[in-house]
């Protein structure tokens, strides 16, 4: 219905960043903002209390910002950056989440990823999965022809 505009194939950018993908990017943006804000407060106010956890927070925040940008930007280069950052996030939330459950003493202070992102409604756990699914369905058009059919189907979703 209202997707008429978005279904019109314009550019590579139009294909990847259209329809429900815009919601994904918006949620990424909000999470990036939240992680950035929290990290800013932690580093300014109490960095000495838990340097490891807070450095990790800052790193995670930076990666979320980068992932948000990479999802929006067109082109194969940014597509790879999007994959790299999202895989990094997923690995981070799994590894840190598991460690924080098994060895809670390692993470006395909450970070974005401790307890699998419990402090953020588990959004950090779910979002990379949705992101990877989105990226897999929206490969940038190959130079020759091998564009996957997923791109057209998802715009109507």
């Amino acid at each position: 219905m209202t997707d008429v505009q978005s279904a019109r194939p314009e550019t590579e950018r139009g294909r990847r960043m259209s329809g429900i993908g815009r919601v994904l990017v918006a949620v990424y943006g909000v999470l990036a903002l939240a992680a950035l804000g929290r990290s800013f407060v932690q580093i300014v106010a109490k960095f000495d209390e838990a340097p490891l956890a807070y450095t990790l927070s800052a790193l995670a925040a930076t990666v979320y910002v980068l992932a948000t940008v990479a999802l929006v930007r067109p082109g194969r280069g940014w597509y790879r950056v999007a994959w790299a950052t999202i895989v990094f996030e997923f690995t981070g939330v799994i590894v840190v989440g598991t460690l924080s459950v098994v060895y809670p003493e390692l993470f006395p202070h909450d970070a974005v990823w401790s307890w699998f992102g419990r402090g953020y409604l588990f959004i950090p756990l779910v979002l990379p999965v949705l992101g990877m699914w989105w990226l897999a369905k929206h490969r940038p058009a190959a130079p020759a022809s091998a564009a996957p059919q997923g791109a057209s189907g998802a715009d109507a979703a």
């Binding site: 219905m1 209202t2 997707d3 505009q5 978005s6 960043m17 259209s18 329809g19 429900i20 993908g21 815009r22 919601v23 990017v25 918006a26 949620v27 943006g29 909000v30 903002l33």
Partner: peptide
């Protein structure tokens, strides 16, 4: 920052999903 950002994001592509983005914001 969120409401202006979401409205701007919605103006770039006026589709149903942009309205959902406004709600998320």
């Amino acid at each position: 920052l969120l409401p202006p950002g979401a409205i701007f994001w919605g103006l770039l592509e006026r589709s149903r999903w942009s309205t959902v983005v406004l709600g998320v914001a």
